[in-house]
Amino acid sequence: MTTHERLVEDLYRRRPRSRFVRLSAAALVVLAIGAWFVGDFPVADLLSNASGEHLSDFAERVVPQPVRGRAFDGGVVLAWAGDLMRTKGWTAAGRTFAISLAAILLAALAGLVLCLPAARTFATPEPFLPGASAPGRLTRLAWTVVRVGVRTFLVFLRSIPEDVWAFLLFGILGANAWPAVLALALHNAGILGKLGAEVVENLPPAPLRALRGLGARRTQVAAAGVFPAALPRFLLYFFYRWETCVREATVLGMLGILSLGTWITDARHRLHYDELVFWILVGAAIVLVGDLLSTILRGAVRRAS
C-alpha cells in the first residue's frame, strides 16, 4: 500500500458518522413510508368521479361573483376585491397583526422569566461559578427539581397546539380576543423559554463569573450580566417566533374571535368560495409582510450587536 492509499484509507476511517443519526434517519423513512400502508387513506377516492364533480363545482364557485358566467374583467374583479378589503379586510388584517403582537410580547415576558430557572448554568446552587462553595446534597437536589420541573412545564406548554389552547380558553373566557392571544402566548412561551435557556447556557462565562466572584447575588448577575449579553439572541428568536405567530393568528379567527379566520369560516359556511380563496390569499399576503418585517428587524438587530 502506498502512502497515498494509506492516507485515503485513514481519511475514510475518520469520516464523520454516527450510528444514532443514521438509525434515526432510517426510522423516519420507515415511518414515513409505512404510514401510507398502515393508515386508511382513500387514495382511490381522490381520483374518483365524485371528487371530480365536487372539484368542478368548486371551480365554478371560485370565480369571483361579479364576473361569474361572463367575460373576465380585471377592473370589476379589482373593484370587488377593494370592496371586500374596505368592508372587512383591513380591520381583520389589523386585528390579526395585533393578536400576533400582543401574544408574542406576552410570550416573551413569560419566556424571559422562565428561561432562567430552566438554564443549567443558572439553576444550580452556585450560578456561573461552579466550585466556589460546597453546597449540600439537598440544595443541589432542590435546584435539580426546580430545573427539571420548569423544563417539563415548558415542554408541556409547547406540546399543546395553539389551536387546542385557543379552543379550551374560548370555552372559559368567552368571545373576546384574549383566548387567541393567550393561546398563542402559552405555546410560544414554552418555545421562547426553552430557546432562552439555551442562550443563557451558551453565554460567554467570563463576565458572569467575574460578577459572581465580586459578590453579586443571583438576581444581580441576571440583571447586570445575563440579560444585557443575551438580548441580541433573544430578539432574534423573538422575531423568528413572531413570524409563526402571524401565521397562526390568521387561522385562530376560525374559532369566532374577529380576525381574518372569521371571514374564512364565514365564506365557507355561505359557500362563497370566491371570497374564501380571496381571504386565504389575503392571509398569505399578511404572512409574507410579517416575514419581510421580521427579516428586516432581525437584520437590524444583528448589525447592532
Partner: peptide, 17 residues
Amino acid sequence: RSVHELLWAVLFLAAIG
C-alpha cells in the same frame, strides 16, 4: 409556506371534501 395548513385544509374541504 405562507398558507397555513388549516387553510389548506379548508380549501380541500371546500374543493374535494
